[in-house]
C-alpha cells in the first residue's frame, strides 16, 4: 500500500516537472509569481509590506511589457509553506517568494527539486542555485538610531530589546549599540533578547530591566511586542525608538523616531530582477542604506525636542553611510559591538 502511494507520488512529481518544462518557454513575457508570507497580506505589518513589494514589481514590470500574475498563500507553518512552494512550482510559477524567516529550509528543499523556478527567501544563510536570499541590512539605520539615542540620552546609557538572537536581528541590535558608542564613546549600552516577536509582557520587563540599570532611550528590535517597550518607557518617562514601520502614533510621547526597513522596495527589486533574469548566481542580497534600505521617520510631536545640531549631524551621518564613507559592520554576536574599534568604521 505504501509503495503504491510512493509510486503515485513519484508519478505526480514527474508529471509536474514535465508541465513546468512545458511552460518555461513563455515565462519571459507572461510569468506567474507566488507570494508566501508568515501571516496575512493585509496585516498592516511584515506580510503586507512584502505583498506591497510584489504588487509594485508587477506594476513596474507591466510598464516594460512583462505581465505577471500574482497569487499568495497565507498563515502557513514552515512545512505547509514547503508544500505550497512545491505546488506553485509544479503549476509553472516562475518565481516563488517565501517572505518568512522560518521558511529557509522550505526554500532550499523545494529549490533542489524544481530547478526551473526561482525561490526567493527572506533572511537565510546563503543563495545557492535557483534559491536567492534577500536580507534587509537594518544595522545601517539602527546605527543611525543609536547615534541619535546617544545624543538624546541624559543618563549616559541606552538599551535595545530584540526578539531573537539571530542573523539580521542581532546585526540590528549591535548596530544600534555601535551607533550609540559612535555618538558617545563613554555611553553604556545594554541588550536583551526575549525569544518572541509578540510577547509584549516580556518585552516590557526586558525594557524595565534596562531602565533599572540606567538606560533612558530604548530601541525596539521586535515586532508587535514593541507595545510592551513603549509601555515601560511611558511608565518611566523615557524615550523609545521603533523599528520596521512608523510607530510614533502608538506612543506619541515616547517614540522619538522609527527606523524604517523599506521592505516593499527590497521585495520589488528582488521580484523584478528574478522575473527578468537579472539575479546574480549565488549572491546574497543583503541590502542596506546604500541600496535604499533604511530610513528614519521622526515623530512630529517629539522631533522639536531634538537639538538642531543633533538633527543636522544625523543627516550628515546618514549621507556618509549611504555614500559608503562609513561602513557599519554586521555583528552577529551580542556584546561584540562593545569591543569594536570605532576607527574601523571609516572606509579606507
Amino acid at each position: 500500500m505504501e509503495m503504491k502511494n510512493l509510486k503515485r507520488l513519484r508519478a505526480t512529481l514527474v508529471i509536474g516537472t514535465v508541465s513546468i518544462l512545458g511552460t518555461t518557454a513563455g515565462w519571459a513575457k507572461d510569468a506567474k509569481v507566488a507570494y508566501i508570507p508568515c501571516g496575512q497580506v493585509n496585516d498592516g505589518s511584515w506580510s503586507q509590506a512584502g505583498y506591497d513589494g510584489v504588487k509594485a514589481a508587477k506594476d513596474a514590470l507591466a510598464k516594460s511589457g512583462t505581465n505577471i500574475t500574482v497569487d499568495y498563500s497565507e498563515n502557513l507553518s514552515p512545512s505547509q509553506a514547503e508544500v505550497a512552494a512545491r505546488d506553485y512550482a509544479t503549476k509553472g510559477y516562475q518565481t516563488v517568494v517565501l517572505h518568512c524567516g522560518t521558511f529557509a529550509n522550505a526554500a532550499y528543499n523545494a529549490g533542489k527539486d524544481f530547478p526551473n523556478t526561482n525561490f526567493l527567501i527572506v533572511v537565510a544563510p546563503k543563495s545557492v542555485g535557483n534559491v536567492w536570499t534577500y536580507i534587509p541590512a537594518m544595522q545601517d539605520i539602527s546605527f543611525v538610531a543609536g547615534y541619535l539615542a546617544s545624543k538624546m540620552s541624559k543618563s549616559g546609557a541606552v538599551g535595545v530589546v530584540a526578539s531573537y538572537n539571530f542573523s539580521n536581528i542581532t546585526w540590528q541590535a549591535e548596530g544600534f549599540r555601535l551607533g550609540a558608542r559612535y555618538g558617545n564613546p563613554k555611553i553604556k549600552t545594554y541588550s536583551n533578547y526575549i525569544n518572541s516577536f509578540d510577547d509584549a509582557g516580556k518585552a516590557k520587563e526586558a525594557a524595565q530591566a534596562e531602565i533599572d540599570s540606567g538606560a533612558d532611550v530604548i530601541y525596539s528590535a521586535t515586532d508587535q511586542a514593541s507595545r510592551g517597550i513603549y509601555a515601560a518607557a511611558e511608565t518611566n518617562g523615557n524615550l523609545a525608538i521603533a523599528s520596521y514601520s512608523d510607530q510614533s502614533k502608538l506612543s506619541p510621547k515616547t517614540v522619538l523616531a522609527s527606523a524604517l526597513a523599506n521592505i516593499p522596495l527590497l521585495v520589488e527589486e528582488m521580484v523584478s530582477n528574478s522575473v527578468s533574469g537579472k539575479l546574480v548566481a549565488d549572491k546574497v542580497y543583503s541590502v542596506g542604506m546604500a541600496g535604499g534600505i533604511g530610513d528614519l521617520a521622526m515623530n512630529p510631536e517629539l522631533s522639536k525636542t531634538i537639538p538642531p545640531e543633533v538633527a543636522k549631524d544625523v543627516q550628515t551621518l546618514m549621507a556618509a553611510i549611504k555614500s559608503g564613507q562609513i561602513k557599519v559592520p554586521a555583528i552577529s554576536e551580542p556584546g561584540q559591538s562593545e569591543k569594536y574599534d570605532l576607527s574601523e568604521l571609516k572606509a579606507k
Binding site: D198, R227, G228, A231
Partner: peptide, 18 residues
Amino acid sequence: ILAVIQIGAYVDGMISGR
C-alpha cells in the same frame, strides 16, 4: 491583566505560553 493593566493594548500571541 496582561492586556488591560500591564500593556494597555492587545497583541496577538501576547499570552505566549503563560
